[in-house]
């Protein structure tokens, strides 16, 4: 009977260990997935930052009276590239998004610019990148949400506490991004 109890004990210990290993690996995977999701957003942001100078160059030729709008985009782009945390990034991205929206709205008043092939392509490319970025941000938030729920649920909570795992920050759309774009045309009177 000693052999049986020994076997039962070893079997249960193996079971418990495997269970905790599964929880541990699951939490680590979730945590790494968040880092990866964030890095994947960065890849697209980088592509968008690369497109902006080209867009400004095309616009400059047609929109000599909208210098302020173009300068705002350049400044917002620089702030975005310098952002380090999720919070800084969401604020800076909000500014850039707003500035781009204003530019595209103002461009409606410049028929020659609107008809320019390069401008149309860049506008389409940037809009598509914006949609991709929005999808990836949603994915990032889903990943963070799964992780934040997991680390507060039993039994994952015990492993998370042992590993000192804390809540991760969600990407929140900046207030500027939610507001309507204020459009002012600076055409000569």
């Amino acid at each position: 009977m000693v052999a049986f109890f020994l076997f039962a004990f070893v079997f249960i210990v193996i079971g418990v260990m495997l269970y905790f290993v599964a929880i541990y690996n699951g939490l680590i995977r979730l945590s790494r997935n968040i880092d990866k999701a964030w890095a994947n957003i960065d890849v697209l942001l980088k592509q968008r930052y690369d497109e902006i100078p080209k867009l400004i160059k095309v616009c400059e030729g047609y929109m000599q009276y909208e210098k302020a709008t173009l300068e705002k985009i350049t400044a917002a782009r620089t702030t975005c590239m310098q952002a380090r945390t999720v919070d800084q990034s969401s604020k800076a991205e909000g500014e850039l998004g707003k500035a781009l929206k204003t530019l595209f709205a103002v461009a409606e008043n410049y028929p020659d610019l609107k008809a320019n092939q390069n401008f149309m392509q860049l506008q389409q490319r940037i809009s598509y990148l914006e949609s991709q970025i929005a999808d990836r941000r949603e994915f990032y938030n889903d990943s963070v949400n799964s992780y934040n729920i997991r680390i507060h649920q039993i039994p994952d909570m015990f492993v998370a506490q042992m590993l000192k795992m804390a809540d991760k920050e969600l990407f929140k759309a900046a207030e500027e991004e939610k507001r309507d774009v204020d459009i002012k045309f600076n055409l000569p009177k």
Binding site: G26, R29, N33, A37, N40, V43, Q132, D142, R150
Partner: peptide
Amino acid sequence: LRRRRMVENIPTSTVRGLA
């Protein structure tokens, strides 16, 4: 169990935002 946790924990991507 490992498979279940994977299905549960990996968020659904859109084709457009796929990495």
